[in-house]
């Protein structure tokens, strides 16, 4: 292995700003590899911005974000893709690629493609075009794609926003299976009651304007909500 062993992501005194609006100021957060880690917060608190920044996809206006000591914003996109995968909140709507092509882009000529797709969705989708699937189906394809990318860290921004309630439960079940196989999942979601009921979370962090507070992952989700309001 190279110097980058996927053990720890560290957010140090990070500022995120849109124009003059300061979303996060001197944010601090440390996440150790393994398990499912949850970011919660009110709308506009900066969860998504922080998540994108941690995945190296959005620039920050101060501080550093490091993966085992290496600055994620100084890595090339190709290098980052080996360690950090990302699932956006909305699935693509205009791509007309076939599902097998989409998955092949993440794992060229991989024999695992049908199996992974079957795991998270339906292997019969392989020959269908992405824009012919429903938003929920497309999102599950995008999740399978992220898993096939083979990165040790998987970031997800509201991945269940487009799923119905039964699909959400399924989705979290699969995500948890992925986390058991050496992949660390960091996600932002409002759907944490479903999630907390199906898995013991490794850590929970409340994003607020004042800063990031780490919560007790064994507490009930109701308690987290109260702290969010308080």
């Amino acid at each position: 292995m190279t110097e980058v062993n996927s053990h720890r992501i560290e957010v140090a005194t990070v500022d995120i700003r849109y124009g003059t609006e300061l979303v996060l100021h001197k944010a601090q957060l440390k996440i150790f590899g393994g398990g499912v880690h949850l970011l919660i917060g009110l709308n506009g608190a900066g969860k998504s911005s922080l998540l994108r920044s941690m995945a190296g996809l959005q620039s920050i206006q101060g501080g550093t974000i490091t993966l085992n000591g290496q600055d994620v914003h100084r890595m090339t996109a190709a290098d980052r893709a080996q360690y950090l995968a990302f699932v956006a909140s909305t699935p693509p709507r205009t791509s007309q690629l076939r599902v097998e092509e989409v998955l092949g882009l993440a794992a060229p000529a991989s024999a695992r493609i049908p199996k992974v797709l079957e795991q998270f969705g339906d292997a019969r989708w392989l020959r269908r075009r992405l824009d012919a699937l429903s938003d929920g189906e497309a999102q599950r394809v995008m999740f399978a794609r992220a898993v096939l990318q083979g990165a040790s860290w998987l970031f997800m921004d509201e991945p269940t926003a487009f799923l119905d309630v039964p699909s959400r439960k399924e989705f979290w079940k699969h995500a948890i299976e992925v986390a058991k196989n050496d992949t660390t999942i960091v996600l932002a979601t409002h759907d944490y009651e479903h999630l907390a009921n199906s898995v013991d979370l490794a850590s929970v962090h409340l994003i607020k304007a004042k800063g990031i507070a780490s919560l007790d992952p064994l507490e009930s989700p109701l308690q987290w909500t109260k702290r969010m309001e308080g």
């Binding site: 996109a77 893709a81 990302f86 205009t94 007309q96 989409v102």
Partner: peptide, 12 residues
């Protein structure tokens, strides 16, 4: 075609 954010995360 999968979107700018996803593309970047896949190494583009």
């Amino acid at each position: 075609t999968l979107g700018p954010l996803t593309a970047q995360s896949m190494g583009v």
